[in-house]
């Protein structure tokens, strides 16, 4: 919807990693013109919520501070797990219920 345009550059955009608007704008000015690169430059979106809140705002900022239009700014690549999964849960499985053929794993790109 609306990005209000008062400067307020110290406002936090990524709550999980505590990344400010200013840090994100700097990254964009240094060439980070995708959500993926903003993440890799600043850590915004690297936290527990995986950018569920801040991705949209970062897309808006990229549109505002780079030459890209919104339809050129997709989301970051999604890597599993989509939701935080405890290590003890990830490690709790029975081979026959949870492991797939090695061939299937090799095909994943």
């Amino acid at each position: 919807m609306h990005e209000n345009n008062t400067d307020n550059n110290d406002v936090i955009i990524c709550r999980c990693e505590e990344i400010s608007k200013e840090e994100i704008i700097n990254a964009i000015r240094n060439g980070a013109d995708t959500v993926t690169l903003v993440k890799k430059y600043t850590r915004a979106g690297m936290g527990l919520c995986k950018g569920k809140t801040c991705s949209i705002v970062i897309q808006r900022l990229i549109a505002e501070y780079s030459s890209k239009s919104p339809d050129q700014i997709p989301f970051d690549i999604e890597r599993e797990p989509f939701r935080p999964i405890k290590i003890s849960v990830m490690g709790n499985y029975e081979d026959e219920n949870a492991l797939v053929d090695h061939e299937i794993c090799l095909k994943r790109k």
Binding site: E80, P81, F82, R83, I85, V89, M90, N92, Y93, E94, N97, A98, L99, V100, I104, C105, K107, R108
Partner: peptide, 22 residues
């Protein structure tokens, strides 16, 4: 139960009863 990954178009990982199932 949360689906947390698509291994491919036919295999999906789910946490169900605190354990992982495909």
């Amino acid at each position: 139960s949360v689906v947390f990954s698509a291994i491919d178009q036919n295999h999906f990982e789910v946490v169900h009863n605190c354990s992982v199932q495909v």
